[in-house]
Design a protein around this nucleic acid. Structure first.
Lengths: 95, 95
DNA sequence: TAGATATTTAGACAAATATCTAAATATTGC
DNA sequence: GCAATATTTAGATATTTGTCTAAATATCTA
């Protein structure tokens, strides 16, 4: 898992909003973009960042490209955060 | 809590390494810096970002400034990640 | 096959950011 | 008070990044 890619992807508010929109289920690029005031090209750039971080998956459906969340990586991300957070049973020694 | 500041702070590998070092307990700026090949000025910049995100706390001890983790914000961050992640009981409807 | 729609790619540009050097500020101990 | 040490601030610079316009690619439908 590319820790750096994931954190960088999460650092942009537009991208976090995209992820938020995908919580309700898969959406096409156009459906996602309808909620934002940026060009399709900019949107596409954000999708590329999210894909590189493996936070979203894509599937072509005819003319459209459908985006969906990759839940696995969210679990990994949560684990990484908790790994940074020292608590009982986590002395920071692992990995 | 400044979601944007927190995610931006986490997006830099040097800052994540700083947090990692602080898992073992409080350290002075100099002790932290010893592990990195960058100038004290650059270090200080990273500390400022981490402080703005409220991920670390500081306390002057004589000549030194002691940094420590602010665990509370890590919990908030974990919550934010999980909030992005759709699971049973989390339909994305809350806040 | 031609035209329309959906999305991405290429290239340019401005804003943000990580780094540096030099200088400033704070504190200690003589 | 002064020199030494620790840290931050100021200002400069190179890289990264988010955005745009224009053009390319993919697919559908008539």
């Amino acid at each position: 898992m590319k820790q750096q890619e994931v954190f960088k992807a999460m650092a942009d508010p537009t991208r976090r909003a995209i992820l938020k929109r995908l919580q309700g289920g898969s959406l096409t690029a156009g459906e996602i973009g309808a909620a934002f005031d940026i060009t399709p090209a900019s949107l596409s750039h954000h999708f590329a960042v999210l894909k590189r971080a493996d936070l979203v998956r894509t599937e072509r459906r005819g003319q459209y490209i459908v985006y969906s969340l990759n839940s696995t990586v969210f679990e990994d991300l949560a684990r990484m955060v908790l790994d940074l957070f020292p608590s009982k049973g986590n002395t920071g020694g692992k990995k």
